[in-house]
Computed example of a mutant assay.
Amino acid sequence: MGVLPKQWLTDPSWIQARLLQLVQNLGLAIELVLVLALTYLVLVVIGERRTLWMVQGFIVLMVAVTLAQNLGLKVLGFVLDKITIGCAIAMAINLQSEVRRFLEQLGRGKIASLFQSSHAPPPRSDSITDEIVEAIKQLSQNRIGALLILETNEPIDERDFSVPGVRLNAEISKELLQTIFQTSTLLHDGAVWVRASRILSAGVILPLSERMASRQLGTRHRAAMGITERVENCICVVVSEETGSISLAERGTLNRPLTSSKLKELLEARLSNTVDREVVAPNLRSLGRRIGSQGGAAIARLLRLTSSASSNKK
Rank of each mutant, 00 (worst) to 15 (best):
S140N: 08
N142S: 11
I144D: 02
G145E: 04
L150N: 00
E154W: 05
I156W: 04
E158W: 00
P164A: 07
P164V: 12
G165T: 07
G165I: 06
L168C: 05
N169Q: 13
N169A: 11
A170F: 11
I172Y: 03
L186R: 09
L187P: 00
L187W: 04
L187D: 10
D189T: 12
G190Y: 04
G190A: 06
A191R: 04
A191W: 02
V192S: 05
A196H: 09
S201E: 00
L206N: 06
L206T: 02
R211I: 03
R211C: 03
A213S: 15
L217H: 07
T219F: 04
R220C: 05
H221Q: 13
R230W: 02
C234F: 01
I235C: 07
I235R: 02
C236E: 06
C236W: 01
V239L: 05
V239G: 02
T243N: 11
T243D: 15
L248Y: 07
E250K: 11
R251D: 06
L254W: 01
N255I: 11
N255Y: 10
T259S: 15
K262P: 02
K262N: 12
K264M: 09
K264F: 00
K264T: 01
L266I: 05
L271A: 12
S272Q: 14
S272C: 13
V275E: 03
D276A: 14
R277I: 08
E278G: 13
V279W: 11
V280Q: 15
